[in-house]
Nucleic acid binder design. Structure first.
Lengths: 219, 219
DNA sequence: TAAAACTGGATTGTCGACAATTTATCGCCA
DNA sequence: TGGCGATAAATTGTCGACAATCCAGTTTTA
C-alpha cells in the first residue's frame, strides 16, 4: 500500500538501493567493512558508482567512513537504539502536530479508512496488525506534515535504520493490539485538528514502543 | 570560541567546505546551477571530487540534484524558512531535554560561565549579544545532548542552512536582549536538571525567534 | 630486549577519457 | 506562421588507470 516514489534511474541509484537493502536485511553484516573493489565486482559496476553509493549510505547514517581508511556498516547497540528513538520521538511528534494542521480533509479520510480496513482484518482474525501496517500509518503522517526537511530526514534517513534494528533484532509484530489503539487516538486528534494533542499522543506512542523494545531485549 | 573539529583531510573535503562556504555566504547565488566542469576548473580539482562535494551538499539540503540534469543551489523562500524553524524547534527542543539529563556538571558550569562572560560584555556596553554568541550557545546544548544523530543532523545539516538564511536575508543581531534572557532561563532549567522545562523553554525560544524574523520580513 | 624505522602489500583518493542522456538549434512540413 | 522532428552541442554518468595513504610484518638500532 505504500507508494514507493523512489525509482532508480542511474546505476549508482540501483547500487545504492541494493546495498541499502542488503545492509538493512543483514545480508551484509552489521559492523563489517565495505571494500570498494569487492563491492564493485559483486554488483558488477565500477568503483566510482560504489563510492557514490557508500557516500549516500553515510548520509543515511547506515555506514561510517574514515578518510583513507574505508567504510564500515554501523553496529547495532542498545544505546544506539535509544538515541534513534529519541530522534523519532522528536521528529514524528512534530510531524503529527503539522499533519493536524496541514493534511487535507480528504487525506485524513483516507488515513481513517486505512486504519479501519486494518481494524476489520484484525478483528475478523484473518491477520495480525503487523509491521507493514504500522509503517504505512507512520509514513502517511510524516508525508501529511508537508514539511520537506522532516519528510526527507525520516524517510530517506532514519527509517531505514529503524527497519534495520527491527529486522536484525527480530521484532516484527510488536504490541499489536495496544499500538493499534494508540494509532486510532492519534488519527482522532488529527481529525479534530488538535495539533497539540496529536503531537503529545505521537510522542507517547513512540515512547511506549521504545519501552516495549527495551523490555524485549531486557536491557 | 566554537571549536571546529571539522578539519579537511582530503581534496574532496576541502572542496566541500569551500563550496559550502561560498553557497552559505552567497558568493554562489541561491538558485543558481552548479556546473561540474565549471567548478572543477574554478577549484582546480577533477570532476570526481566536485561530484563528491556536490553529493555531500545535497545530503546537507543545500543543493538539489536531478539525475542526468544537474544540481542547483536551493532557493530561499519564506515557506522554506518556516519549515526549517519547525524542524529546529523539534530537534533543539529534544536536544535541550537531553542536555538537562546528560551534560556533566562541569559542562553545565562552563555553559553558565560562557553566558556570564557574554552578559558582562553586553552589560558594560562594549558589544552587543550577536550571532556568534547565539550560535555558540546553541552548539553547546546540541553537543550536550550526547545524541549522535541529533548532533550530526543539526551541526552538519540544518545549521548551515540556518546560517545561509541569516546571512542572505541580512539579520545578524536580532532580538539581542530578549534572546539573552531566554538563554539564561534555559541554562537555569538545565542546571536544575529539569528536562521537561528545558525542552519547553527551548521550543518557545525558537518559536519567538521565528516570529521575530517573520515580522522583520513582514510576511 | 624493546622501540623506532623501513619495506611490501593492499586500499582509498584522484584523474582524464569515453558513453549516455538531456537540452538547444535548425530545418521541415502542415 | 507555428509547431513538430531530427541533428548537434553540452552536460552528466561511468569506467579503468595511476597516485597517495594506511597497515602489518620485518629489520635495524639504541
Amino acid at each position: 500500500m505504500t507508494f514507493f516514489t523512489e525509482q532508480p534511474v542511474t546505476a549508482a541509484d540501483k547500487t545504492f538501493f541494493q546495498l541499502r537493502k542488503d545492509i538493512v536485511e543483514g545480508d551484509v553484516a552489521a559492523g563489517s567493512k565495505l571494500s570498494e573493489t569487492e563491492l564493485s565486482t559483486k554488483y558488477a559496476v565500477s568503483r566510482a558508482v560504489v563510492r557514490e553509493a557508500i557516500n549516500r549510505l553515510e548520509a543515511s547514517h547506515l555506514v561510517e567512513r574514515k578518510a583513507n581508511v574505508g567504510a564500515r556498516v554501523v553496529t547495532l547497540t542498545p544505546e544506539g537504539l535509544v538515541e534513534l528513538y529519541q530522534v523519532r520521538e522528536s521528529l514524528e511528534g512534530m510531524a503529527a502536530r503539522l499533519a493536524a494542521q496541514n493534511m487535507t480533509d480528504h487525506e485524513i479520510a483516507d488515513l481513517q479508512a486505512l486504519l479501519n480496513s486494518h481494524f476489520d482484518k484484525v478483528q475478523s482474525g484473518l491477520t495480525y496488525y503487523q509491521e507493514a501496517g504500522d509503517v504505512d500509518f507512520h509514513y502517511r503522517i510524516i508525508l501529511g506534515s508537508k514539511n520537506k526537511h522532516l519528510i526527507s530526514m525520516l524517510t530517506d534517513g532514519i527509517y531505514h535504520l529503524v527497519r534495520m534494528y527491527r529486522v536484525q533484532l527480530g521484532m516484527s509484530g510488536p504490541r499489536v493490539t495496544t499500538a493499534f489503539d494508540e494509532h486510532k487516538h492519534i488519527v482522532q486528534a488529527i481529525c479534530n485538528r488538535d495539533a497539540e494533542l496529536a503531537e503529545m499522543l505521537m510522542r507517547r506512542h513512540i515512547l511506549y514502543s521504545k519501552s516495549s523494545i527495551e523490555n524485549k531485549l531486557n536491557l
